[in-house]
Computed example of a mutant assay.
Amino acid sequence: MAEPASDHADEAIDRPAIYRTLLLAFLVWAAHFTVSYGAVLVFPGQPAARIITVVAGIGALAVLAWWGFGLPHPRSSLAAGMIGLAAAAVVFGTFPALVG
Rank of each mutant, 00 (worst) to 15 (best):
A2P: 12
H8I: 14
A9R: 12
E11S: 15
A12W: 13
A12G: 12
P16M: 07
A17Y: 10
I18T: 12
R20L: 13
L22M: 05
L22Y: 01
L22D: 03
L23M: 11
L24N: 01
L27K: 11
V28N: 00
H32P: 03
F33C: 10
F33M: 10
Y37C: 12
G38T: 06
V40Y: 14
L41E: 14
L41H: 15
V42G: 09
F43P: 03
P44D: 07
P44F: 09
I51H: 05
I52N: 02
T53Q: 01
G57M: 03
I58H: 05
A60S: 04
A62S: 08
L64D: 00
A65M: 08
W66E: 09
W66H: 15
G68W: 04
F69V: 14
F69S: 08
G70C: 05
G70Y: 03
L71N: 03
L71R: 04
P72N: 06
P74W: 07
S77G: 13
L78P: 07
L78N: 08
L78R: 05
A79S: 08
I83R: 00
G84F: 06
G84S: 10
L85P: 05
L85S: 15
A87Q: 03
A88M: 11
A89M: 09
V90N: 01
V91Y: 06
F92L: 13
F95G: 06
P96H: 02
P96L: 00
A97H: 00
A97E: 02
A97N: 04
L98W: 01
G100N: 05
